[in-house]
Nucleic acid binder design. Sequence first.
DNA 1: TTAAAGAACGAACGATCGTGCTATATTCCA
DNA 2: TGGAATATAGCACGATCGTTCGTTCTTTAA
Lengths: 200, 200
Amino acid sequence: MATLAATPKGVATRDLIVERAYQQVRLGGFEGLSIGGVASAVSMSKSGVFAHFGSREELQRAVLEAGVQHFIEAVFRPALRERRGLPRLLSIMRRTLEWMSGSLGGCPMVSAAIEYDDRPGAIRDAVAAYQKRLRSELVKAIGMAVETGELRDDTDADQLAFEFFAIELAVHHDSRLFDKDAAVAHGLRAVDRLLASART
Amino acid sequence: MATLAATPKGVATRDLIVERAYQQVRLGGFEGLSIGGVASAVSMSKSGVFAHFGSREELQRAVLEAGVQHFIEAVFRPALRERRGLPRLLSIMRRTLEWMSGSLGGCPMVSAAIEYDDRPGAIRDAVAAYQKRLRSELVKAIGMAVETGELRDDTDADQLAFEFFAIELAVHHDSRLFDKDAAVAHGLRAVDRLLASART
DNA sequence: TTAAAGAACGAACGATCGTGCTATATTCCA
DNA sequence: TGGAATATAGCACGATCGTTCGTTCTTTAA
């Protein structure tokens, strides 16, 4: 029977599988993910891998969640060490642009958004929920910068978060298709300009 | 032999195939495109469809080009009827945001960019070339608005085009995953703010 | 140490994939 | 209208896909 990870060894290999699948997704996208592919990547049989998830979709969902966790670990966790307000907001944006221009493959959340935005189902729902949550974190960070008096009182946090997110997507795009350094430079300049016009 | 479209009827069915494949791509992406799928969509045999292109990749390239043509037809062609300068630039942006929030599926160029940015090959090259060309059209339109004196002389056209493009991507994202009207509204506001700070 | 539980394997399934090859319709042009 | 060119169909191939099943090996807990 395919009892889903009940023993220490079970969760260990499951984590290993997800991590390898995560790398595969960053290069080939979620629909390019195949159980046979990750099986040979972890030197296991297809059925051995399959037993850990019960379906390909469940594996994809696990990889998506792993991607979100990695993003939080790379961006929000360190940014939370900065003081509330502008420093933390700037840290979030700088780290996110670094993440978006990373060279080990594309951002899995961006891939997932494009691949599933027109395909109803569990994955699309998960993607929408994650995106909503991360956006609200951005809104919250902006709100704190308003509270500290570093951004103007009449700042529209939703609008500003939208524009920040836009920059993130464009850096992701340009750094992968054109020149990485130029893309990040454009992104940072855009962030500066945006903050300058919202600063008190 | 698979001679590629030499007779009137040949090009007609080829066009039909590409058009149907285009619809399929907008929903399932380029890697989700299958020859068998479009074959049944046009009521032909797999080999009949295949003969028109010689390979799946060639079909994908044809669909990509069709997507670019549709975009030009929907955005640049009508915008060129506007006077050079701010009116034309505004027309381009408004029409592009409409295109990005369209409801028949995602923008094929955005899909192609995400799917192939980390996968070297002919399609990636074509995507990069198209994106570069469209970006340069945006830069050109901005340059004209500088020449007419409607935008400031020290406007950085590349930077501004980058930020416009960022807005386009974000509208594409949000209108599909969240609320369409809110996404377009955010996009238009962002365009306004951008132009306001660059206006003379 | 032993019995139960879980992890992994191997083989097979039906389906679909892209791609050849060959033959038959169909269209085109002189 | 006849003959050449072309468009389409049919069939089969090897490969890969996700999934199921029964078995075997390994880990776990009493």
